[in-house]
Design a binder for these strands. Sequence first.
DNA 1: ATGCCTTATTTCACGGCCTCATCTAACATG
DNA 2: CATGTTAGATGAGGCCGTGAAATAAGGCAT
Lengths: 397, 397
Amino acid sequence: MVRLERRTVRDLRRGNRAVLLRTLYFTGPTSRHELSGLTGLSAASVSNVTGDLIAENVIVEAGLVESDGGRPRVLLRVNPAFGYVIGVDVGETHVHVEQFDLDMNELAKAEYTLRPGRHDVDLVVRHILDGIDTVLTSSGTDPAEVMGVGIGVPGIVESGPEALIHAQTFGWDAVPLGALLRAGTPLPLYVDNGAKTMGQAELWFGSGRGSRHAIVVLIGTGVGASIITDGLTYRGVNSSAGEWGHTKVAVGGRACRCGARGCLEAYIGAGSILERAGLSAEMAREQATLAELVRSGDPVIDETIDYLGAGLANLINLFNPERIVIGGWAGHLLGRHELPKIKKAVLENSLSQPFETASIVLGRLGPDAVALGAATLVVEEFLLGKAFSHRQQPAAI
Amino acid sequence: MVRLERRTVRDLRRGNRAVLLRTLYFTGPTSRHELSGLTGLSAASVSNVTGDLIAENVIVEAGLVESDGGRPRVLLRVNPAFGYVIGVDVGETHVHVEQFDLDMNELAKAEYTLRPGRHDVDLVVRHILDGIDTVLTSSGTDPAEVMGVGIGVPGIVESGPEALIHAQTFGWDAVPLGALLRAGTPLPLYVDNGAKTMGQAELWFGSGRGSRHAIVVLIGTGVGASIITDGLTYRGVNSSAGEWGHTKVAVGGRACRCGARGCLEAYIGAGSILERAGLSAEMAREQATLAELVRSGDPVIDETIDYLGAGLANLINLFNPERIVIGGWAGHLLGRHELPKIKKAVLENSLSQPFETASIVLGRLGPDAVALGAATLVVEEFLLGKAFSHRQQPAAI
DNA sequence: ATGCCTTATTTCACGGCCTCATCTAACATG
DNA sequence: CATGTTAGATGAGGCCGTGAAATAAGGCAT
């Protein structure tokens, strides 16, 4: 059932302000005149709203552009120093904490290594809190200028003030990461699944840019996906949507580490590929070993591509996206060498109408995309000016 | 990328008017006072907007309710005779045309039988056009009072003025049904996939009522799904989203009539079940034969349930819905007898967090739901007052 | 009957918003 | 330095939703 909400004349302004701010953010330096054309707002309104935004220091003037014969245009842009955002990537083997300005320039970074298999909650929490301190100190930023901290974690994140995390591979069962961090910092926190944060990074700054219905898949040791519908990350009712890795592509097939059988991850997850090749690779050498398999054209890779093709085709048949972005280190490895084969496998497994409109591309951002994307959770909130409404967001804690 | 749109003070009124109208439509007779509480609008605004709506005859007063000691409340309701809508169900063996008032009371009906395998486009078009005339004549309705005709068809419907239809099972490849109908009637037309129209019927009036994220699956000879996100049918970029029947649950498995292998439909579609049981049933006796299989507890049914469980679990893992509604004649047959087994199969194939929040229920509406749902496409347009914006609708042709 | 009490709905002044038309600013050109 | 051109600002006007006050429409006790 659609939930429409009443609006007052003030919501109007908030909304139009958000329209302007978002346009400015994604278009870059733009004159008031152009903004009027881009947003549909009258020149008068653009003038009013930008006036407010400048007074609040949210946007700043950024040079002139002469126009032939007339008054030059004043370019406006979002003030990158209006505030700062922090993104955290909690991975299987590391915790990365990065600070950005609003232009997403990286200002500072702190990295911590986790011993594989040792995902002590308190240790992770300490790394995150320490990392926040470290980056702020190293960049000389006043904590009051930090708009929030976005955190990308593996597994399912239940939205809510506790941000309960269920991550089987970490041995985390209902870990209240939000509450634990809340005890250590007053900054606004946004916790979300790492595949979703990476997806938002690719959507905003990478290969997904400009698309409205897209899917970003993350293939590493684990397999996940970020589903973007109508330009926003789709989260479902409990924000666990997008668990692509545990969809079944072979009823009664290989056992997966999640306990079920026939999961996609049991075929295309990096560890599973190695297992199927008869290699019991150490975590540490996983990447090099897989790279060698791909390079040597091992038949297990072809089989993997068949499963990947089916998995991607399922997404195409169900979501009818305009773009599919392949990310994650194993995804990059496969995609870099075998994209034509992958596309062929998808073609064989999907209906032709949706297949034809879905372009399949490699992710453009590196492994840091998880932290970058986590930071964009904070920026999203800033751009929507708290005026967003109907779609579930990972609310600040 | 989110597309926010500028709004003027007039959009505000259109939006709030839609809020009020929708509340009134789904809540039933309601006083102005209650409406104020339900919508959040001030009493003054409710008074203004309802005044307009009454003047336009869109809503009418509907009796009084005394309140203890004070002025009695005047109940308001949508005027069921403000306009009429027509829903068409184009199925494998029939064309049904039904006329409803805005309360979705069926006022007239026309039915045509199609010989299986003979899906001549012109014949279908003639049936539809003839059906429209027939129901209007039999109910004595002036065509000028008809708000539109919704048409549910099998296969993929490309949105656009032509409404190109791709339905392999009909042998329809890019049939411009919209254009063909347009030549025969001036009424606004809304063409959409039948699974989607049935889904909207269950969402509005059946087992999906009140849910925001739901999936309605249609299991008959063919297998489809309607995906409801944020209360609206999700269509994707080309409105082909929801092709669940051709997602792969067994890489390299049984051949499907779509040409691929391992499709869900090749295991749980009614015809496929019979085939797997070694019965080459005639279309005409399909239903009775399948019923017999289910009743006798044939092992092929247990196998079917395994595949159905995997298919539903995939939807749960990907969409994290609050409800799954099982519809379609074969779906009802299986669900009526084997719902506990189905739930167990889903449990075994889905992650526990999303599983726990998804209730799995049987559809409540009968086989007429496709036509009813098609008619709701027109009502949807009416309720949104053309003020909807960001979500793709099957635009009127 | 009458006056008071309670609750529902309407009216009205007000402040906020966007837009159109008009005005001013800031440049180039000759 | 006057003129032309384009960018941006300003102000009147028309809508909108809201709160407060007014009015409507009953019940109830006297």
